[in-house]
Design a protein around this nucleic acid. Sequence first.
DNA 1: CTGCATCCATCCCGATACTG
DNA 2: CAGTATCGGGATGGATGCAG
Lengths: 93, 93
Amino acid sequence: MVGGKYKLIILHKLATHGIRRFNELRREFPNITQRTLTRQLRELESDGLINRQVYPEIPPKVEYSLSETGKSLYPIFLQIEKWGLEYMENNPK
Amino acid sequence: MVGGKYKLIILHKLATHGIRRFNELRREFPNITQRTLTRQLRELESDGLINRQVYPEIPPKVEYSLSETGKSLYPIFLQIEKWGLEYMENNPK
DNA sequence: CTGCATCCATCCCGATACTG
DNA sequence: CAGTATCGGGATGGATGCAG
């Protein structure tokens, strides 16, 4: 469910900074292409990790946020982050 | 570093059951092909997560075990396992 | 603004046969 | 026993253009 190239950082961004619109995410991850961002978001949505709120306006507006299930991943993120910091301490460069 | 299809379960097996020989791992994961098992083990080794001990005998003998870095991943595994159990409780089927 | 359609390169893994 | 060699297919991500 989190196997995509950008899924973890997307979830992390939504976890730490809350609701985000599509183009906000594009700006925050300049390397990801539009097509890929769309697909990763759709996959996260169909796995129930994020919510997708569409506002039927012109111009369109779509907001992404963590679902409850997505939020429940947060302890894992913290554990991974802790590991990463220790790993960098023991393997400096 | 743990992105391969079988890397997490290989690490988990080594974490919970200690040293394993090549063909023991093959038997324990019947779905993995020889070629793929070899590659995943080599990648784990070059990332420093497992140790590869070769005994220059006939017939050959190679033992795989967790490195200290590999062992340090264990808290993450526990956190993931905990999440998985809760997820299945909340999403029964 | 938020997409979809198309085409393409690469990576990952599997199937199978062979080897010291 | 513990691999290597070869071939191939499917998934993943990128580039580019078009659209409501």
